[in-house]
Computed example of a mutant assay.
Amino acid sequence: MNKTGWVWQLAQLAMVLLLTATPVWAAMGVVQLPAQRGAPEVTVFYPAAGQNQTLERAGLRVAALPDAPALAGNGRLIVFSHGSGSTPWAYADLAQQLVAAGFVVVAPTHPYDHRGNNDQAGPESWKTRPAEVSQAIDVLARTPRFAKQLRLDRVGMYGLSVPVATPH
């Protein structure tokens, strides 16, 4: 094989790898949006440029870049509902894997049923979770840094404990 043929094959291989590769972003941005208009506080994990820092959140070490500018990603949103007595931060590693695939992940902190406040843990708080999930989506739809890059016609949902029934 001559030198030109080898270079051409290498260029073709590089193009195939480039076109089929899953995009991976360098950092996971994170921002907490305060409770607003009756919606709970939400934590947003998203693709960002830069290098992650080690953060301490809810007694956990999390690799993320706080308040970083958001990158476009794949335009898709996944809502994550934590289990009773937990926190979105306990699942930052899962969020990081989803962000690496280009997703934005929003996680509402369920009022009165989270790590800092279990006053209404259990069946009473579970009744409000579908509304809290919808409100979290609405918060992102009203937040300019995310609204213009998300396609909200199809949203993924993931939950633990009883929240797995939330979408029903």
Rank of each mutant, 00 (worst) to 15 (best):
M1Y: 08
M1G: 13
M1S: 13
N2M: 01
N2V: 00
T4Y: 03
T4H: 05
G5H: 03
W6C: 00
W8S: 11
Q9C: 09
L10I: 10
Q12T: 09
L13H: 02
L13W: 11
A14N: 01
M15V: 14
L17C: 12
L17Y: 05
L17T: 07
L19S: 10
V24M: 07
A27S: 13
Q32I: 06
Q32R: 14
P34D: 12
P34K: 11
Q36D: 14
G38M: 08
P40K: 05
V42E: 03
T43M: 08
V44C: 00
P47E: 01
A48P: 06
A48H: 06
A49I: 01
G50Y: 04
N52S: 11
L55E: 12
L55P: 09
R57P: 00
R57F: 07
A58Q: 06
A58K: 05
L60T: 03
R61K: 15
R61E: 15
R61C: 07
A63N: 14
P66I: 05
D67V: 01
D67T: 02
A68K: 09
A68L: 10
P69E: 10
L71G: 05
L71Q: 15
A72Q: 14
A72K: 14
G73N: 04
N74T: 10
N74D: 10
G75C: 04
L77W: 01
I78H: 00
I78N: 01
V79Y: 02
F80G: 01
S81E: 10
S81A: 12
H82G: 01
S86A: 12
W89T: 09
W89H: 13
D93F: 10
L94F: 12
L94P: 00
A95W: 09
Q96S: 14
Q97I: 03
V99C: 09
V99D: 08
A100E: 13
A101I: 02
A101Y: 10
V105W: 08
V105P: 02
V106Y: 04
A107E: 05
P108F: 07
T109Y: 00
H110T: 13
D113K: 08
D113V: 07
D113L: 06
D113G: 04
H114S: 11
H114M: 03
R115I: 13
N118D: 02
Q120C: 06
Q120R: 15
A121N: 09
P123G: 06
E124M: 11
E124F: 08
E124Y: 08
W126G: 04
K127R: 15
R129D: 04
R129I: 12
P130E: 03
V133E: 09
Q135D: 12
A136V: 02
T143F: 05
R145E: 12
F146A: 03
A147Q: 11
Q149T: 10
Q149S: 09
Q149V: 02
R151H: 13
V155L: 07
M157I: 11
Y158P: 00
S161E: 07
S161F: 09
V162G: 05
V162Q: 15
V164E: 04
P167M: 11
P167C: 10
H168T: 15
